[in-house]
């Protein structure tokens, strides 16, 4: 593993969160669309979302969306201003803080569901 600093991890997380969002979106479209095969099929799919993996995934995807959105703004600031490059590290810590906070908030709001399912 190359021992890069903040920028390298910012870049890697941006890619990973992008992929996670894409996967979530495809899953979302597919599971909503599955209704065309009838209610039984639709419900069968939605029951699998009760698995712990999907419950936890809700918190992770929240963090991923917030990270991707705000890091995207960070990249825009870097691309358009010299100061953006100078303060990229501080901005990244800001982005990370926002992502963690939003994940915590999501966990708090979803707590009953995280613990007990539907």
């Amino acid at each position: 593993m190359y021992r890069g600093r903040e920028g390298q991890w910012a870049f890697l997380l941006h890619r990973l969160s992008g992929l996670a969002i894409l996967a979530y979106l495809l899953l979302h479209v597919f599971s909503i669309g599955s209704f065309i095969f009838g209610e039984r099929f639709y419900m069968a799919i939605h029951h699998t979302y009760d698995l712990w993996f999907f419950r936890l995934g809700l918190v992770v995807i929240t963090a991923g969306v917030v990270y991707h959105a705000f890091n995207g703004l960070r990249i825009i600031v870097m691309d358009f201003t010299g100061a953006g490059v100078a303060y990229q590290r501080q901005m990244w810590y800001g982005v990370m803080a926002l992502s963690v906070l939003s994940a915590l908030y999501a966990a708090y709001r979803l707590y009953p569901r995280l613990i007990g399912g539907y």
Partner: peptide
Amino acid sequence: CRTAYNCTE
């Protein structure tokens, strides 16, 4: 370039 800053470091 995806601004990973490894080069600068």
